[in-house]
Design a protein around this nucleic acid. Structure first.
Lengths: 216, 216
DNA sequence: CTGGAAATTAAATTAATTGTTAATTAAATT
DNA sequence: AATTTAATTAACAATTAATTTAATTTCCAG
């Protein structure tokens, strides 16, 4: 429908701000995170960006290509550091250091971009999610491989709890981090929970992972 | 479209099986789990049940009332035991026993009804989920209250890791259990992961919660 | 046996949405 | 002045979904 009140057709006067295309990506990623990809009509993205749906076609061609652009230029770009944190060989340190680094990187990355976890949960982790195949291909193998192997190695050396299933560790870590942040908007509304911040979450997850509830 | 091949209008001959209404609820809950509530048209439920959409209106009135029936007669009914496992006062045992019981009950309940975790993730845990408010009202307060308090108590007694944030424990437990099972269809497809069963998952989660990776 | 109630389908209706395109307008650039 | 770029307006076309109505068949009570 009508974009920013009173805007008439025609090229606008030069603005100095960030370019339109990039702003549209920002709005799109936000909307995809809040309502899911298939739950976000172009018209809503357009409305939020104070623009018309036709402009989205002007910049991206069609919805699929918009999703593509969002994935490449926003999602994958953001996840690169977390990926590196496990794939870069860290000479000499064992599984627990590896995980510590991974957890910290993930939680920091994701705190800075609160739209990422909900998007992940909806579009990667739930059946029929539109980013599933893509991210399984590009992300999962490397991350799970590196973590699982490190755990197995330390377990053989008798350094780790033998009841831990190495192949479940990546899932557990995602559950404790991405999932926790994805549902932040839910549990932070419970009485007395408003003040839980990222630092607390990092400390909590690290403590739980390294020595569990009983503490070490 | 057309229900079971060649079925013509009219009341069918008496069948001895479970009643139609109940079967429709089963199909609905399954579909809601796979595709989400708003992603499931009545026509798909009808097709899967080899019936016409009109019959769903006959039994439930409209889609909202169908959702209501699913929640009351399937979802809440199933979760009752897990609720009891934390709310029933267990004389004398501390937080770790409480959690052990909760984890076991949740994992058992949910293994028997694999449709529950995906439904939860989609409709409770993600923003805009249709079961959010309902289940927040009915479930969350009691569960989180009981767990958080038990942890705080034991922490004051010096029995538990002080870096653990009591208010985050319920989230972490959900992340390690419900979430892990919700994504089962995802990670069980990775090479070498086919054989991870519920027993392994229970052992893993308990080990992680009680003493972390480093083991006790 | 008969007539009404129950269970079911077929078919139409209504209502909205949504991605997409075409035509048009106005500023910027050369 | 001519052309390209950035935007809007307006409408199409597909289709999708929930709901309603009428017809059909079987069951069951009297």
């Amino acid at each position: 429908m009508s974009p920013s009140r009173g805007r008439r057709p025609g090229r606008p006067e030069n603005s100095t701000g960030p370019d339109q295309r990039s702003q549209l990506l920002d709005v799109a990623v936000q909307q995809f995170s809040e309502h899911g990809i298939s739950g976000t009509p172009l018209s809503r993205i357009a409305r939020e960006a104070r623009v018309t749906p036709a402009l989205l076609h002007y910049y991206f061609g069609n919805k699929d290509q918009l999703v593509d652009a969002v994935v490449r230029e926003r999602v994958l770009a953001l996840m690169a550091p977390a990926l590196q944190s496990v794939t870069q060989p860290s000479p000499g340190d064992g599984a627990s250091h590896l995980l510590d680094r991974f957890v910290a990187t993930v939680l920091e990355t994701v705190s800075a971009a609160p739209w990422l976890p909900p998007l992940w949960v909806r579009e990667v982790l739930t059946e029929g999610g539109q980013l599933r195949e893509m991210l399984i291909r590009e992300v999962a193998p490397r991350v799970t491989g590196a973590i699982t192997e490190a755990i197995e190695r330390d377990q053989r050396l008798g350094l780790l709890n033998p009841d831990i299933e190495p192949r479940l560790v990546p899932i557990s870590v995602i559950g404790l981090t991405v999932f926790a942040l994805a549902t932040h908007s839910l549990w932070s509304r419970f009485p007395g929970n408003q003040d839980i911040d990222t630092a607390t979450l990092i400390r909590h997850v690290r403590a739980l992972l390294s020595s569990g509830l009983s503490g070490g």
